[in-house]
Simulated scan of single mutants.
Amino acid sequence: MNRRELAADIDAACRLSGVFTLRSGLTSEEYFDKYLFESDPKLLNRVAEAMVSLLPPGTDLVGGLELGGVPLATVVSQLTGFPALFVRKQAKEYGTRRVAEGVIDIGGRRVTLIEDVITTGGAVRQAALSLRAQGAHVTSVVCAIDRSDGSSSALADVGLAVHPVLTRTDLDAVHQR
């Protein structure tokens, strides 16, 4: 994978300008619309291929976070053969009432979370804690874009290592102003 080419293609396809409120409540004048690469089969596949090389040894399951992590986890699952787990923001109030769909018994299994964009890590933190409460071992997250400030891992306080395909710095380095 040519990381610089991928960064340029993702930046060109996904960077939007304006005023945006992020999930964290923070506002930003730029937004990386991950659905613009996740809906493009070629870009989605390139990102997923890059994610495969970042999966930690011992991964049993890949857990895609609702909604943007689900297509990524699905393609990573196809490429690796690891079963996929689809992690909701909160358990359904009907049907199975589970927070994670797919593999039913996750107790004792090593789940690597798959996320699209991480800024503060709030959704990843919540997912990791929910899966750990069910007995899963969750110590890593692989993300397409880490747009945090880079000063320290936003998820170190809950024992999660972040493995990004691209960082905000990577995207800024190729941005055509």
Rank of each mutant, 00 (worst) to 15 (best):
V141D: 01
G108F: 11
R15M: 13
L155T: 14
G122N: 00
G122P: 01
L85S: 09
L61K: 08
T59Q: 08
K42W: 06
D146T: 12
L65F: 13
R88A: 02
A133Y: 07
Y31I: 03
V62P: 15
A12N: 15
D40H: 15
Q176A: 07
Y35H: 10
D9P: 00
S17N: 07
A12C: 12
Q176C: 00
G108E: 12
L22V: 03
R88K: 06
L54E: 10
R98Y: 07
V117S: 06
D149I: 03
L54A: 12
V158H: 04
D60C: 11
A8Y: 11
R147C: 05
P56M: 08
E115S: 00
F82E: 04
M51G: 01
S130F: 10
L85W: 10
I10G: 06
L55H: 10
F82V: 06
S152A: 14
Q176M: 12
E29M: 03
D60P: 03
R15N: 03
V111K: 00
D11L: 08
N45D: 11
T21F: 02
S77G: 14
G150D: 04
L44I: 08
F86Q: 14
V62T: 13
A12F: 13
G81P: 14
G18V: 12
A123C: 02
Q90V: 00
G108P: 12
L166R: 08
G122Q: 02
G68N: 05
R23K: 12
K92A: 07
T96R: 13
Y31R: 06
T119Y: 02
Q134A: 14
R46H: 05
V158I: 14
V52P: 07
G150Q: 07
G81T: 10
R46G: 01
R97I: 06
E30R: 09
V76T: 05
G150M: 04
G102I: 01
G150F: 01
L61F: 14
V117L: 08
C143V: 15
G102H: 04
V111M: 00
D116I: 05
A154Q: 15
V162A: 11
S153T: 15
L36P: 02
D149A: 10
S140K: 08
R98V: 03
R132I: 08
G135P: 12
L55V: 09
L79I: 06
G81I: 14
A12R: 15
F20I: 06
I145V: 11
A91L: 05
R125T: 01
M51R: 02
G64F: 03
C14R: 02
D146R: 04
V47Y: 04
A50T: 01
C143S: 12
I145L: 13
E38F: 05
E66F: 08
G102W: 04
R46V: 01
V99M: 03
